[in-house]
Design a protein around this nucleic acid. Structure first.
Length: 426
RNA sequence: CGGGGUAUAGCGCAGUCUGGUAGCGCACUCGCUUUGGGAGCGAGUGGUCGUAAGUUCGAAUCUUACUACCCCGACCA
């Protein structure tokens, strides 16, 4: 992509209505623009990042054996009345009417729709277990949307639902999802903790949250300093206790002491049991020919929130520092004097074509601006590698390879492709 | 919903106290000179000052109501 062609409105100043760093950087780097409170438009490079995350989630879900479907955003009231959630959900559920005055809602989650699908189409235990997922826009009319897409009202989410004959099978599906989530976050290059969460009436190890660690996280979690153990602080606190009082106490798993950390909840896996399948009578015949209500699990991962969380965890005073798997572009060619010097323009374009054909996602800064403007924008957007073609190229055929982390080296332009061959392998 | 704050050009701001018909920086357009850390000079474009009503000869400025947005809290697979 040529910089002069892409729709990428970057900002020098910090927009006054953005408080947290990820929100500021997403606005400044031209990833998103607000439409109204908690509702955003994704611009080209923002969408590019969002799609990368989405694709990694999809690949790992498929690898786990789950199958992708797409359910509607608009859902009829009748389904929600079956589980009594039409009344229980409160104002967070955005309700609308059609031209016949029938009630609908915009789906904040899809237990009702999918349970309806399953009860109408699955009749035998032989068809189980089944895990279906979708990646779809959700709407929740949050009491207080904030921090940009971190807590938006409209957001992109992967939600999946497993249907199992019994608890053992449910537990297997649950563990598969847990492994898939670990792989997703590892591939995204994020530091995270799996946190024991409040499992409500269901009990046991039936609910765990995946938190990306970040100083500005909305949630407070208790982490053992000498094991992987982590738990939601709500589960440890007695009425009236201060969160700080947990710091230094023995970890509940018996290993090490508690450290208090801030996290952003990006995923939640949950064993629902038979709550919805009982309410909606979703059953199959077991091998004895008896009717059995299904066991159900639900597993969510916030795709758009992951983007914000990644930035929250990876930034400096210059801008975003993208993990390899999420960066909108892998290489940026800074061509100083592209419009004036044919030799520079040719070298930059040739390199652009060559790296592109090698499979890299390349950006070429062909704008009229000087080095300062170009490198500032590249650093703001967080492109991992910059290749600078300027005076040194004209003088002795050398270009600079400058990494986002500050490292840099000088080399002949002919060697660049060799270096990148090496990168692609490693 | 309770508490706090903001609203003037695309972005960041001044002007409001003390009423006199809107300004600065950046961005944008044109020209020339520049080009290795957000360039210089010159000439331009762009705003019914969030909305409505009121006071006044006259309102960005004073009064009232409303709206939007942000922050704290409560809430939140």
């Amino acid at each position: 992509m040529f910089w002069s062609k892409i729709f990428l409105p970057t900002l020098k100043d910090i927009p006054q209505d953005a408080e947290v760093i990820s929100h500021q950087l997403m606005l400044r780097s031209g990833m998103i623009r607000r439409v109204t409170s908690g509702i955003y438009t994704w611009l080209p490079i923002g969408l590019k990042v969002l799609r990368k995350v989405e694709n990694i989630v999809r690949e790992e879900m498929n690898a786990s054996g789950a199958q992708e479907i797409l359910m509607p955003m608009v859902q009829p009231k009748e389904l929600w009345e079956e589980t009594q959630r039409w009344d229980k959900m409160g104002p967070e559920l955005l309700r609308i009417k059609d031209r016949h005055e029938r009630d609908f809602c915009l789906g904040p989650t899809h237990e009702e729709v999918i349970t309806d699908l399953i009860r109408n189409n699955i009749k035998s235990y032989k068809e189980l277990p089944l895990n279906l997922y979708q990646i779809q826009t959700k709407f929740r009319d949050e009491v207080r949307p904030r921090y940009g897409v971190m807590r938006g009202r409209e957001f992109l989410m992967k939600d999946s639902y497993s249907f199992n004959l019994n608890e053992e099978s449910l537990n297997e599906s649950y563990l598969l999802m847990k492994e898939a989530y670990k792989k997703i976050l590892d591939r995204l290059g994020l530091k995270f903790k799996i946190v024991k969460a409040d499992s409500g009436a269901i009990g046991g190890d039936a609910s765990e949250e995946f938190h990306v660690l970040a100083e500005n996280g909305e949630d407070t979690i208790a982490v053992s300093d000498s094991s992987d153990f982590a738990i939601n602080t709500e589960l440890l606190l007695e009425e009236g206790d201060a969160i700080e009082s947990l710091q230094g106490k023995p970890s509940p798993d018996g290993k090490g002491i508690i450290q208090i950390k801030k996290g952003i909840e990006v995923g939640h896996i949950f064993q629902l049991g038979k709550v919805y399948t009982d309410a909606m009578k979703a059953s199959v015949l077991n091998h004895e020919g008896k009717t059995k209500n299904l066991f159900m699990g639900c597993y969510g991962i916030g795709v758009s929130r992951l983007v914000a969380a990644a930035i929250e965890q990876n930034n400096d005073e210059k801008g975003i520092i993208w993990p390899e798997a999420m960066t909108p572009f892998e290489v940026n060619i800074v061509a100083i004097g592209f419009d004036k010097d044919e030799k520079i323009a040719k070298a930059a374009t040739d390199l652009y074509n060559e790296l592109s054909s090698m499979g890299y996602e390349v950006m070429l800064d062909d704008r009229k601006d000087g080095y300062g403007t170009k490198i500032k924008d590249a650093e703001l957007i967080g492109i991992p590698v910059n290749i600078i073609i300027g005076k040194q190229y004209l003088q002795n055929n050398e270009v600079e390879l400058k990494h986002r982390d500050g490292q840099s080296s000088i080399g002949k332009v002919e060697d660049i492709t060799t270096i990148f061959e090496h990168y692609k392998i490693s």
